[in-house]
């Protein structure tokens, strides 16, 4: 091992033996797959939902401030741009919810086989879309 950069490619396995690490895929030339796509979308939706909590806080603070502030916030949420943002929020929420269950089942050691993982990935995407559509159907038909 002559090149000093090669030292970065060396790690220890669980038995303490020195091994050459596998190289991470270069994302620019790596074909997107359901495994990598669902993974990065879990992070993206997580960060987006974190930012989206500002909407929840604005809603609650306005309600605590009084009638005037609350009706302004409710009117903004009811406007088309408000509804569009809230639509994105619900889609992100239901995706993170469903894929979170998938992650928890992996943490329990279940569903690691490649066909199972691909199936659960498609299931998560489908369930998130169905739940989002159902939410907005209820919001517009019942409410």
């Amino acid at each position: 091992m002559k090149d000093v950069r090669e030292a970065l490619m060396v790690g220890r396995n669980s038995e303490g033996k020195l091994v050459r690490r596998p190289l991470s895929p270069h994302l620019q030339v790596y074909k997107p797959q359901i495994s990598s796509a669902t993974s990065i979308f879990h992070r993206i939706t997580g960060v987006a939902l974190s930012g989206g909590t500002i909407l929840l806080v604005a809603w609650l603070v306005a309600a605590a401030s009084g009638d005037g502030a609350f009706s302004v916030v409710q009117a903004i949420f009811a406007s088309w741009i408000g509804q569009l943002v809230l639509f994105g929020f619900t889609l992100a929420l239901f995706y993170h919810f469903c894929n979170g269950i998938r992650h928890l089942s992996w943490d329990a050691g279940k569903g690691f086989e490649l066909p199972d993982m691909h199936r659960s990935g498609r299931l998560v995407i489908g369930a998130a879309i169905i739940l989002t559509v159902a939410f907005w159907a209820v919001a517009y038909i019942v409410g």
């Binding site: 609350f70 409710q74 939410f135 409410g143």
Partner: peptide, 17 residues
């Protein structure tokens, strides 16, 4: 939370309080 949001959709201040 999702159910609460559906219940409180378009609610006035009195309903929220």
């Amino acid at each position: 939370f999702v159910v609460s949001v559906l219940i409180l959709k378009g609610a006035d201040h009195a309903a929220m309080a």
